[in-house]
Amino acid sequence: MDAFTTFTAVAVPLDAANVDTDQIIPAPFLSRPRADGYRDLLFYRVRRDADGEMNPDFTLNQDAYKDAGIIVADRNFGCGSSRENAAWTLLDNGFRSVIAPSFGDIHYNNQMNNGMVPVILPDAVCATIRAQLHAGPGARITVDLQSNRVTGPDGTKYEFAIPEFNRYRLLEGLDDIAMTLDLEADIAACEARRRAQEGWLFR
């Protein structure tokens, strides 16, 4: 996965709470192989009207956001299905970071496992940033993982917390499988202990 140090991009405000992963990418597209790309699928249904035309009222469809790379969302972004395709879809559309007051647990991990930085900021801060973005469409935000800081459209800096383990992996662009395979001795020791404790699981 690509390393993430600092990222500056146009940010798009999404006002809805509970944006579930079914909205980010509807289930009928999940059979598409990863290698074929997901660029055309982001918010496939939500961004279209009943006739299948792009709905100009959907923020993401507006011209100012065509190069957006950051989403500023509302509570519980990415709740629902565990589909990692949701992170792939965001990534394939150039999004490297989502800022929200809270995330669905599985999607939060999925973003980090794909080199994205999910940023948790308080409700009021997210609301302020979204209002600033609406007032000045096309404004840019910086997510700096080295200093754990977001710089808002007006230059205000906000500190955020992210699990240190994931921060380290993101900064280095490290895949965790290789890392974990180095811990073989520890895994084997735990496995032996589990065998002694609950041997029936291994028969």
């Binding site: 990692e84 992170a87 599985i106 999925n110 496992n113 499988i177 974990t180 395979l181 895994i187």
Partner: peptide, 14 residues
């Protein structure tokens, strides 16, 4: 878990 985590479990059982 997500797909990356599935692969991690397959490879490492952890």
């Amino acid at each position: 878990i997500g797909a990356s985590e599935v692969a991690h479990v397959m490879a490492t059982q952890t």
